[in-house]
Amino acid sequence: MVADEPTFARLMAATQNGDKAAGNVLLSEAGVWLERYFRRRVPPHQIDDLVQEVLIAFYTKRGTWDPARPFLPWLAAIARYRWVDHLRKVYKHDSQELMDDDAAQDSEEEVVLARVSLDRLFGQLPEKQAEVIEMVKIGGLSIREAAEKTGQSESLVKVNIHRGLKKMATLVEKAE
């Protein structure tokens, strides 16, 4: 069972004061909470890396939590920031596909949920941008193949991918 808000807040206050035992419990519980948080946001095989990244950010920036304010929104804000950063990195590198082969080994439900979240983002993009991002970044087609399939020029495919990804990152960042 994941800890509740008052427990998290109590553990965090102790952690800020250097209590190692509280810190250990807090980091473990935060890890579980983050796993749930990311389950609907990234493909399953990327979750653990992202959770580790957020835990490191959490640890480094632990002084920025104000004990007068709730803990979980603070953690969620850091998680979302790292998620946006992660999306940028993943989409930037052609070698890193959103849906690698090993995703098939994870539960179907999780894969579907990760896609649902991405599909909702795609729904907010112009059709031409969503189409080429899906073909190149998820389907693994080359720029030329996507250009041939869609009838767009290669430069336009590149521009649409770039603009679409930028808009997706902005949409995620702005979502409250």
Binding site: T15, Q16, N17, G18, D19, K20, G23, N24, L27, S28, G31, D48, D49, V51, Q52, L55, I56, Y59, T60, R62, G63, T64, W65, D66, P67
Partner: peptide
């Protein structure tokens, strides 16, 4: 901070290094 293969190792390392931290205040 280096990346760990195992989350438990990462948490153990961070816990080991944990020190009191000065709060960042709006004021």
């Amino acid at each position: 901070m280096e990346k760990y293969n195992n989350r438990a190792d990462l948490i153990a390392a961070m816990t080991e290094d944990l020190t009191p931290v000065r709060r960042v205040k709006r004021s």
